[in-house]
Design a binder for these strands. Sequence first.
DNA 1: GGTCTATCGTTTGTCGCACAACACTTCTGT
DNA 2: ACAGAAGTGTTGTGCGACAAACGATAGACC
Lengths: 174, 174
Amino acid sequence: MAATDPCELPADRRRGSNFGWSLGMVLRRWQERVEELLRDLPHGSRGYHILAVVVHEEVPTQVALAARLAIDRSVLTYVIDDLENAGLIERRRAPQDRRARRIVATERGRQTLDEAERRVAHAEDHVLGGLPEEQRDVLRDLAARAAEAIHVAAPATDPCVAVQSVLPSADQPG
Amino acid sequence: MAATDPCELPADRRRGSNFGWSLGMVLRRWQERVEELLRDLPHGSRGYHILAVVVHEEVPTQVALAARLAIDRSVLTYVIDDLENAGLIERRRAPQDRRARRIVATERGRQTLDEAERRVAHAEDHVLGGLPEEQRDVLRDLAARAAEAIHVAAPATDPCVAVQSVLPSADQPG
DNA sequence: GGTCTATCGTTTGTCGCACAACACTTCTGT
DNA sequence: ACAGAAGTGTTGTGCGACAAACGATAGACC
């Protein structure tokens, strides 16, 4: 098989590679920092992600926006409400389909995102301060590509196998 | 300056580097998989992290355990309850300080963790399937080191500067 | 044209989790 | 013995994610 079997690695190697924990740790800190820096942006990092997509990509509908960000439709409703109230984006009825709303950024929204991106970039460098410059970019890049791959292969639930218990069978000593 | 200014990168580059979103995406999928595979392990990935530390490191008290995992003490209480009920770990009063509980893994707990780690490693390769083998290891490694650095520099709240608004000042056109 | 179904957006309710606050036990120092 | 500190457990509260139901509109089919 092509894959290295992690079970053959020494325990130290495996213990250090608590990938889920590491991700959680970095993400939590990232969010802390970002929430702090973007205090005025409605819904913090959430609003930031949404605003970024709205500005950089012209996503036709809210549903498409939700799909793009892999978040629930119903979340978009209130976040967009607040971004709109802050004058950063506008809801426009799509002329060809009056059910759909086209979300467009205002000039103010674009300016805000620009400033926000500057700050977030700065915060990221801070969060990843434990890594040398070069490796930060590698990490960002790898994370982005992994995430992208996950996103396009979206089906999420791959019913690969019937799941057995992790626990050893009952006849084993406790 | 040593740091590359991300604002100078072309928009496409910056858009792709939505680091927080990427982390969230990968983490969410990782958790989905792990929860699925470790269905029988109390509290899924949470229980997994805790069990792993209990088995691999001999952490003296619950407080130390919480600090090691950077989670709240009060979470430990009920997760440990359930891990104990599942016969995977034991709470023992520390002989020299009867306030403290020493958490030790049972043989069954060790076996369970061993199997769980096998599965998690497999799931990780699946989650990171979008990356070639080699880069998966790089990502794991970088994430681990970034997380470790964050963890040791724990103070979390670094009141570096008074935070200004991200929003442009009021005289800007909307 | 009229009806029927699917889609878009919004609203509401439920669930789980993080965190704070309080209570209890035990240790330490005087 | 007493006061205060530290380890643990319990309870309550608030927030965010997600599912389900609802109204509005579009498109297909007769």
